[in-house]
């Protein structure tokens, strides 16, 4: 068999906080894409599952000098000493060498939630309930992403279902590399303000790589050295100043 020689990618994201209006379209398109079930009656902000969560961050000034940005927080896809990978006793999460995606396999998880404690970004969620859709609604599930059972941790995998589809399409056309236009996570596609840019950080010409190098771009908690691959951007200096000690509402 011919040896597959795929290009190694480091997929990353750049979120423009000045453009984000906090509408929540990314959260819903994510839930629909990744078959995240509606909340049970008792679910709260602490027990709910949102692979990307948009929270308000305030500059702390008094009205009317108050200013807010909305921070969409998907898995930050840490590359180095990935905290969740380091602590998982089950090898239920790993950093994919082909794509740099921190891939969670919930079916392998035993539910100890160590990873949730370890994640400095609070980007991991636990299934306190079995996924349940109202009767008939399971027909609307995305066929490309498996639903998870109660008792496991889950998180954003950069829409791996779409990565699979892009790879299949590329293979069918005889290509080894996926076309960037074929692999766009749901939140990126959904954002009405075009606040999210996605692409390969290894490709210096990609919009995300160029944007990440901008002086107004930053990453949260760089001091931890996790080398996350989700960049943010804001003209507001106070937002950038908060990047290493942020508190979301």
């Amino acid at each position: 068999m011919e040896q597959a020689t795929e290009k190694k990618s480091r997929f990353g994201m750049l979120i423009d906080l000045d453009r984000c209006t906090g509408c929540g379209a990314c959260m819903i398109s994510c839930a629909v894409e990744n078959n995240i079930a509606p909340a049970e009656q008792k679910a709260t902000t602490r027990t709910g599952v949102t692979w990307i969560r948009v929270s308000a961050m305030s500059n702390g000034a008094e009205f009317p000098a108050t200013d807010t940005v909305y921070v969409p927080m998907p898995c930050q896809q840490c590359e180095k000493d990935t905290p969740c990978v380091a602590v998982c006793p089950q090898n239920a999460v790993d950093v994919d060498p082909q794509t740099g995606i921190v891939g969670q396999v919930p079916q392998r998880c035993l539910g100890c939630r160590y990873c949730m404690t370890a994640c400095p970004y609070h980007a991991r969620y636990f299934d306190w309930w079995d996924p349940r859709w109202p009767e008939g609604m399971e027909q609307t599930l995305n066929p490309d992403v498996a639903p998870r059972m109660r008792g496991v941790a889950e998180k954003c995998n950069f829409c791996h279902g779409r990565l699979h589809a892009a790879r299949t399409k590329a293979a069918a056309e005889g290509r080894t590399d996926i076309a960037p236009a074929d692999y766009v996570p749901a939140c990126v596609e959904a954002c009405p303000a075009h606040a999210i840019v996605f692409g390969d950080l290894n490709d210096a010409e990609s919009e995300v790589a160029r944007g990440a190098a901008h002086p107004h771009s930053f990453r949260f908690l760089v001091k931890l050295g996790t080398e996350s691959k989700v960049y943010y951007r804001s003209e507001r200096a106070w937002v950038r100043d908060n990047a290493d000690a942020f508190r979301l509402a």
Binding site: G22, G24, M27, I28, C30, A31, V32, I36, A37, P38, A39, A43, T44, T45, T47, G48, V49, T50, R53, V54, S55, A56, E62, F63, Y70, W133, P134, A249
Partner: peptide, 26 residues
């Protein structure tokens, strides 16, 4: 709306469930 809108209404504080009131901290 779809029950999955709980992501923004119930499972996060991005939007407010009915009966929530917002006040300035002062």
């Amino acid at each position: 709306i779809s029950p999955v809108m709980s992501k923004v209404f119930q499972e996060s504080d991005l939007r407010m469930n009915g009966g929530t009131v917002l006040l300035n901290p002062k």
